[in-house]
Design a protein around this nucleic acid. Structure first.
Length: 878
DNA sequence: CGATCCCGCCACATT
DNA sequence: AATGTGGCGGGATCG
């Protein structure tokens, strides 16, 4: 029924449909709607390939193409899908054939295909099981939901269960942090302990389970005081702030999930039937009470079981007992936990048997572990948890007590990103074309450094483009050390930190292109990126932090990342390579404009980069384009690269080469590419425009500023890409120390998909002025910088972003929203995945790229994005 | 026909 | 009021 309705709806009132999806993509919708009503279908869900079922239905109905898509979709790999999506399907949809879609449609969507278990697998596939310790991957519910083509509600089911096992934690509204399985054993251990307390007794009997069922339930009740049980179970969450905690119905699903797992851990047989579990889990106890209640409980258990199954912790079996064959699940996960109960506190990493992964990687997590322990022990409640509660309120609350720090950090980052995003969107919308984005760290910089490191970063920033030369020198040297993430130890000194070449965005993956980085940098960066990328999609949000730490390195590293450090890049690289393909570094064509470095004006650089791109792409960039526009050609290549990168194999080598090459040629521009976690969803493309090679430095954490002029294109999966280009200009304009900022200014936050919606293009006025601001490096912190800052740090800093600031230093920056169609001036296109194309196309302004070129200065158009788009396309000549 | 469990309404929480 | 969460159970689909 729904389907029909919608289908109908769509034609009639696209808008209606939109509401659902649209909410997310605000920016886009307005524009598109007018253009292509059809979009509705698309729109709702960003991802073409995995639209909501309904949407799918509609689409499929609309066009056969969709079906194919879906089929493909089945294949899984969002990535693949995305690629596929390249095809202009979306457009087609519009066209849609009515051909008897219905029949096909119906067939397709088998219930199984929509199963929670499958969905969960897809979800899990997006993130690395063992993410680097430092990285924090943030998960945007909206984004994931759209990518996976399901309603958000379903994601909650998954996330809630994952959260119960601490595989993820809620950071903020709509945002979760992916932790991976590093702590899983710890968590299980804790649960086991708790389970023994609660259910241990019962378990004893257990083998007989069948009979026992009832008894079980009963006993349990009797034996264990509910209160205790609960506490234990809840441990992590609610208790703390008892007050608030319970207000909500407490997340029964989470608690249920924990209890369910406990049953397995306590059970001798490791097999638990749903009946028993349901009975035990029915708090009320009064058993039977409602048959309906029991029934509902069982339903929930199925939900949980599906997720646990996807995690490989349990599998379904059937127990035949007296009563007959009953559905049951068997625990197939780890049984013994290293630290095991022996010592409750097992946390200590040192003694901890757990794989180093935990320790090293998890360093940050350890905290969590602690928390857990606590939780194990009731005592725990006292401590942090309360805070948690508080926090929650404040930030919207992470449920999990532990990791607060991280969470905060994440949340901050996220917030920033979100802020940026919003701003961007706003800007986009608002015609104030000229508005510049300035994401400066606000004075509140201190925030930046949630993590230790703040300082370093800034310096880096300075590097700004203009100073590239300086930077180079500095950066190269300094950077090297910083690079360390991989090798850092070698250098010994962390000083480098500041200069990191990259920007990290909390959001999903980033795609960065940097102008010649020095070898060192490159290498390091690459690895990093690679890592990120490797993560598969995982990289996501997590990346930024990680990167930051690493980069910022020394300082940062200390606490959390130590491990990483130790494990040098090599590992990472290998890892990365093997794993994923993420990062690509594209060796730039040697083109070096080496001199660029020397050249004060970064101006040269940009062109170079562009060229490089072109070369890479093979597309001849238009000379004019040189500035930036040329990007389009890149797209294809990039994409390819992307895909390649993903491949474990190649990436590494390529990277290495690149790095080497780079090394040779200090100036050569390089690109970093970070895949988005899932792949498709979003990309960020960042490349340094003019700058000299060194130019790009990002402070890891602090980073707020990017000194290098960069263009970042965050692409949400869907379509929006915001692209920002900063013109090389820098120096002059920003007298301010920021130089760095001023120069580079582009950022995108694609963190969550949302950003995507509004593509933004920012160009400094154009041209680069070679001037370098002498003081570029100055504190980025200073508010003065008008230019954009992209550093995650900034983001964290909280509202630091000043998007609005129209002018940064002297440069006028223009924001342009890039619409998909029109290409972005530079690389944007490349960035866009096929799917984007579709979107873009729709709008119809494809050819625009040319127009864009001007972006830099000219673009100041005030018109709304749409208008802009139109204008652009129309006025391309501009 | 029982086992599964998708789907999405709707209440409650949060913003 | 809008939006985020997530309990809940009708009823469709699977086996």
């Amino acid at each position: 029924e729904n389907i029909f309705d919608r289908s109908r709806m769509a034609p009639k009132t696209p808008i209606k449909n939109e509401p659902v999806d649209l909410s997310k993509q605000k920016g886009c919708t307005p524009e598109r709607n007018p253009i292509t009503p059809v979009k509705l279908t698309d729109r709702p869900q960003p991802d073409p390939w995995t639209p909501t079922a309904n949407l799918k239905m509609l689409v499929s109905a609309a066009s056969p193409d969709m079906r194919d898509r879906e089929k493909k979709k089945e294949l899984f790999r969002p990535i693949e899908n995305s690629e596929q999506s390249d095809t202009p399907d979306s457009l087609q949809y519009d066209m849609v054939d009515d051909s008897t879609v219905d029949e096909f449609e119906k067939q397709r969507p088998s219930r199984k295909q929509k199963s929670l278990g499958l969905l969960c697998q897809k979800f899990l596939a997006r993130y690395p099981s063992y993410p680097l310790s430092t990285e924090k991957t943030t998960i945007s519910l909206d984004e994931v939901a759209s990518i996976l083509g399901v309603e958000r509600r379903r994601i909650y089911d998954i996330v809630n269960v994952l959260e119960s096992l601490h595989l993820v934690s809620r950071v903020a509204k709509n945002q979760y942090c992916w932790h991976g399985r590093h702590n899983l054993s710890q968590t299980l251990k804790t649960l086991q302990e708790a389970g023994e307390l609660q259910y241990g007794e019962l378990m004893t009997f257990q083998h007989k389970e069948q009979d026992l069922d009832y008894k079980f339930g009963e006993r349990k009740k009797e034996t264990i005081p509910d209160t205790q049980d609960r506490q234990l179970l809840d441990f992590s969450e609610p208790d703390c702030t008892s007050a608030s905690a319970n207000s909500r119905k407490d997340k029964s699903l989470r608690i249920m999930s924990q209890k369910f797992v406990m049953l397995f851990l306590v059970s001798k047989t490791k097999i638990v039937t749903l009946d028993i579990a349901a009975k035990i889990l029915i708090e009320e106890t009064q058993d039977t009470v409602d048959h309906s209640k029991f029934k509902t409980k069982v339903r929930r258990l199925y939900d949980i079981a599906n997720v646990l199954t996807s995690l490989g912790l349990i599998k379904k079996v059937h127990v035949t007992e007296e009563r007959g064959r009953k559905p049951a699940f068997k625990w197939i996960g780890p049984v013994e936990f290293p630290g095991k109960t022996d010592e409750p506190r097992g946390n200590n990493p040192t003694s901890d048997p757990l794989p180093r992964t935990q320790r090293g990687v998890c360093a940050p997590y350890q905290i969590c572990a602690t928390g857990k322990q606590r939780f194990t022990r009731h005592t725990s409640f006292n401590g942090e948890q309360p805070c948690e509660g508080t926090r929650r309120k404040v930030s919207s609350e992470p449920n999990s007590p532990r990791q607060e720090r991280q969470d905060e950090y994440c949340s901050k980052v996220i917030n920033l990103a979100a802020v940026c995003r919003q701003k961007i969107e706003e800007d986009t919308r608002n015609p104030s074309t000229t508005s510049t984005l300035s994401l400066l760290p606000v004075p509140g910089d201190s925030d930046f450094c949630v993590n230790p490191l703040p300082q370093a970063v800034f310096p880096m920033v300075q590097a700004d483009v203009p100073n590239l030369a300086l930077l180079n020198g500095v950066s190269s040297q300094t950077l090297h050390p910083s690079m360390p993430a991989a090798s850092k130890t070698e250098n010994g000194k962390p000083t480098l930190l500041p200069s990191q070449p990259f920007l990290c965005f909390p959001s999903s993956s980033l795609f960065m292109l940097c102008g010649g980085l020095q070898e060192n940098n490159l290498r390091e960066t690459l690895p990093t990126t690679g890592e990120v990328g490797n993560r598969n999609a995982e990289a996501q949000a997590a990346v930024p932090p990680t990167a930051c730490q690493k980069r910022s390195s020394h300082k940062c590293t200390s606490p959390s990342a130590p491990v990483d450090d130790e494990e040098p890049a090599a590992k990472k690289q290998t890892m990365e390579q093997s794993d994923a393909p993420l990062s690509l570094v594209v060796p730039k064509k040697p083109f070096e404009s080496p001199k660029a470095e020397s050249i004060p004006g970064s101006g040269c650089t940009p062109s170079v980069h562009l060229e490089a791109f072109h070369l890479d792409l093979a597309s001849p960039a238009a000379p004019e384009a040189a500035d930036k526009e040329s990007t389009k050609p890149l797209d294809s290549q990039e994409q390819e690269k992307w895909s390649q990168n993903k491949d474990p194999d190649e990436p590494s080598p390529g990277k290495e080469h690149i790095s080497k090459e780079n090394a040779n040629q200090p100036f050569l521009p390089q690109y970093l590419y970070v895949q988005p976690t899932s792949g498709l969803s979003s990309f960020n493309f960042l490349f340094s425009a003019n700058q000299a090679p060194g130019a790009i430095s990002l402070a890891a954490r602090q980073l707020p500023s990017l000194s290098v002029p960069c263009v970042v294109v965050p692409s949400a999966a869907m379509g929006s890409f915001p692209v920002v280009c900063s013109p090389p200009v820098t120096g002059p304009l920003s007298p301010v120390p920021d130089g760095s900022f001023s120069a580079a200014a582009s950022m995108n936050f694609s963190v969550s998909g949302l950003a995507s919606t509004a593509p933004v293009f920012i160009g400094t006025t154009a041209v680069v002025t070679p001037k370098v601001s002498p003081t570029p490096s100055v504190d980025p912190q200073q508010p003065a910088h008008p230019t954009l800052h992209l550093s995650p740090v900034l983001a964290r800093s909280c509202g630091a972003l000043k998007l609005d600031s129209p002018v940064c230093m002297g440069h006028p920056v223009t924001l342009l929203k890039l619409q998909q169609p029109s290409s972005t001036p530079l690389t944007p296109k490349s960035i866009r995945p096929a799917r984007h194309e579709a979107f873009f196309k729709t709008p119809g302004s494809l050819g625009d790229p040319v127009a864009w070129k001007k972006n830099e200065g000219n673009q100041t158009r005030n018109a709304s994005s749409v208008q802009r788009r139109l204008e652009i396309s129309s006025t391309s000549p501009d």
